[in-house]
Write a protein that binds this DNA or RNA. Structure first.
Length: 314
RNA sequence: GGUGACGUAGCCAAGUGGUAAGGCGUAGGUCUGCAACACCUUGAUUCGCCGGUUCAAAUCCGGCCGUCACCU
């Protein structure tokens, strides 16, 4: 059942990962699995991490958690920075902690980058960011974006080949890495792939449903969010935090600002919110589609992750 | 029944004689420290239908059909 373990010689715990687009029913599936195998859930969702953003991010409520511990959920202030590197560090720490209690960590989430950082060899150990450099590059991008791209072509042609010239954000990041570390982004990514080894075996599961049904569920869920008081939650946040924050740009909140400002009817804001959510789900599906070895969530029942991980004692 | 306006992609829409802009939606894709971000690609052998004028018609002319408005 687990060829990676036998071939590598050293034992690796098997960790279930439930992924999929928004509104596909991941959370329920994860809770169900966790209850069956005595698991704890580690969320891999870049927006559910925030406090005070419960309804709009569809963060599971106490009742929906059904007594299963959920980690990395609702613990970051909306005005605090949090990156993939932070996520991976925390998630790995939790995986080990949960395993050492004899329980099974269940990863559940829809943020492709976060999941990639767990299951692929990403080099995130040393900090290669530099806010000062980034600020400077951002300013430069406003006046001379083409110049930035040409500089990247000179400095790091491999990355320049992969990044479209209009994707200023990524162009800036690649240049930032080079200026901050003296190494190119492509070199660094390559190094990560060579050096980093993943101490776990991840098994991926996804709820499959046809596009139409998913889109129907999204529309319905947005309506339910409004009923549950999304407007009140969003307005409270809007009074407290800057709209330009990453958290405040989350789907479910940013679409309401024109309505709050009186520039748009509520009906229209909701229409756009539904549309943006559908677009998001589509992007998620594109992301997951190219990941290999994803099984339908229904197959979860075939695996007893507890037993798989008990081999450790052998 | 009469008069007038309109009919271009799923929707909105530019184009008034020289070989079908654009936007939205849809679909596909990219992704290594802001990722619910950012970015890329995506359709009309044809303009309601039929006929005419012309080297050339979505564009001009005639008829028909449809929609809307006003009048009776």
């Amino acid at each position: 059942m687990n060829s990676e373990n036998s071939s590598s010689g050293s034992f690796k715990p098997v960790i279930p990962v439930i992924l999929g687009p928004t509104a596909s029913g991941k959370s329920e599936a994860a809770v169900k699995l966790a209850k069956r195998i005595d698991g704890e859930i580690i969320s891999a969702d870049s927006m559910q991490i925030y406090q005070e953003m419960q309804i709009g991010t569809a963060r599971p409520t106490k009742e929906e958690m059904e007594g299963v511990p959920h980690h990395l959920v609702g613990f970051v202030r909306p005005d605090e920075p949090f990156t993939v590197a932070d996520f991976r560090k925390e998630a790995y720490r939790l995986i080990d902690a949960i395993l050492s209690c004899g329980k099974v960590p269940v990863i559940c989430g829809g943020t492709g980058l976060y999941i990639n950082s767990l299951i692929y060899p990403y080099d995130l150990e040393k900090d290669n960011t530099d806010p000062k450099i980034r600020k400077r590059l951002e300013k430069e991008a406003q006046t001379n974006p083409d110049g930035l791209y040409r500089r990247l072509q000179k400095v790091d042609p491999v990355s320049a080949e992969k990044i479209h010239k209009n994707n200023t954000k990524r162009v800036i990041r690649a240049l930032e890495i080079f200026e901050a570390t003296g190494k190119t982004k492509s070199e660094q990514d390559e190094e990560g792939r060579e050096k980093v080894s993943i101490p776990y075996v991840f098994k991926l599961f996804m709820p499959f449903m046809d596009r139409e049904e998913l889109y129907r569920r999204i529309d319905k869920r947005v309506d339910r969010m409004i009923e549950k008081g999304l407007l009140v939650e969003a307005e409270k946040l809007d009074q407290k935090y800057d709209r330009s924050l990453v958290s405040m740009q989350a789907i479910g909140y940013k679409e309401l600002y024109p309505y709050f400002d009186g520039n748009e009817s509520l009906e229209e804001a909701i229409r756009i919110l539904k549309r943006d959510t559908r677009h998001f789900a589509k992007r998620q599906m594109t992301w997951f589609r190219r990941m290999q070895g994803i099984e339908p969530v229904e197959d979860l029942n075939q695996y007893d992750f507890r037993k798989l991980n008990q081999q450790k004692e052998d």
